[in-house]
Design a protein around this nucleic acid. Structure first.
Lengths: 186, 186
DNA sequence: CGGCTTGTGTACCGGTCGGTAAAGTGTTAT
DNA sequence: ATAACACTTTACCGACCGGTACACAAGCCG
């Protein structure tokens, strides 16, 4: 018997992609097993709670990634404008310049939202709060900072939807560019 | 035996809501039957092609609604600014001020997109083209008109995602208000 | 009346769903 | 050596999936 995977954490990225591509309901244990190379037994060994626990784990990992690479820099970095610019670039990379979908946004749209409502909500709330903080530090008053942040998040999500709908990643990149302009030169 | 439905067209709105709530894959024949009040026999009488034909029919109906209430006014109405304002209001009503999801956008995000790729693409392309035409008539040069239209569509889709994610329809309404500002006073 | 069309209800099909059970195989610690 | 642990394989479960077949009930039309 060969250990096919070193740690549970190693398969989370694969799980993430599967959920992104097929959604929560569409990601059957068959395709999950195929993509991860793990049988049901192994999957249920790592995730006794089944698909739901898998998705929770993926969301937790996403939360951690954003906290490290987006939220914290936005909140803590001295040069707020620089932090905004850098995190926008990080977002562009994260979403593969529009070729990758936002799992949290995708989950929000159909009825699997109810299963993960708290996580979905806090993901956007944290992002909004962090971006608002940076914008405030950059000189905007609290109210316009909040509006700008909200607008930026919607533009990003909308850009991802449009890029995927039109099968044209450039749509997302242009949306990001407009957002950058509004946040930094607006 | 009582005829439970007058015409096939009468059940399209119900089908639309079911697909919006559950997605294409999540909308099982069981829940479709339950919500429409029709058994499988009747459903397959009206839609011999099954779920796929149902979704196609819904998308066709959506296309028709938007063509009448959004695209045509944008393209043809004399007062372009007025047309933009009115169609934005129509969009707000259509999406129930953020309580309703965009079926086309939702389909675009998971892998059922491939089934309806052409329809999804043309929905946004038509919208973009019509809005661009109105903005051009309102005095913008072609290039900024195109960018403004693209931005507006992304903002709308993003607003819907955010409203649903945060369970707060006001998010969509604020996104629409900002869009109105950019299109008409920008 | 009798046939025809248009719906409808129901039983059923093979396949897939998420999930469970348990035996077995390696590795590691004692 | 052996026992404990970590992981995998396989077979299996009942429920549900989308879809089909078909008998049948009502309205219509001659």
């Amino acid at each position: 018997m060969v250990k096919t995977v070193a740690e549970r954490a190693d398969i989370l990225p694969v799980l993430g992609e599967v959920f992104r591509e097929h959604g929560f309901e569409g990601a059957s244990l068959a395709v999950i097993g195929e993509r991860t190379g793990l049988g049901k037994g192994s999957l249920y060994h790592f995730f006794p709670g089944g698909k739901e626990e898998m998705a929770e784990a993926v969301l937790t990992e996403i939360d951690a990634w954003f906290a490290t690479h987006i939220f914290r820099p936005l909140r803590e970095e001295k040069d707020a404008a620089r932090a905004i610019g850098r995190t926008l670039k990080a977002v562009e990379d994260y979403f593969r310049s529009g070729r990758r979908v936002c799992l949290v946004g995708a989950l929000a749209l159909n009825d699997s939202r109810d299963l993960f409502a708290r996580r979905i909500k806090s993901y956007f709330a944290d992002w909004n709060e962090a971006l608002t903080a940076a914008l405030t530090r950059a000189g905007h008053d609290r109210k316009t900072a909040r509006a700008l942040a909200e607008d930026a998040l919607a533009a990003i999500q909308g850009g991802l939807v449009m890029a995927r709908a039109m099968n044209d990643p450039a749509l997302f990149q242009r949306a990001l560019a407009r957002t950058r302009g509004r946040l930094l030169e607006g």
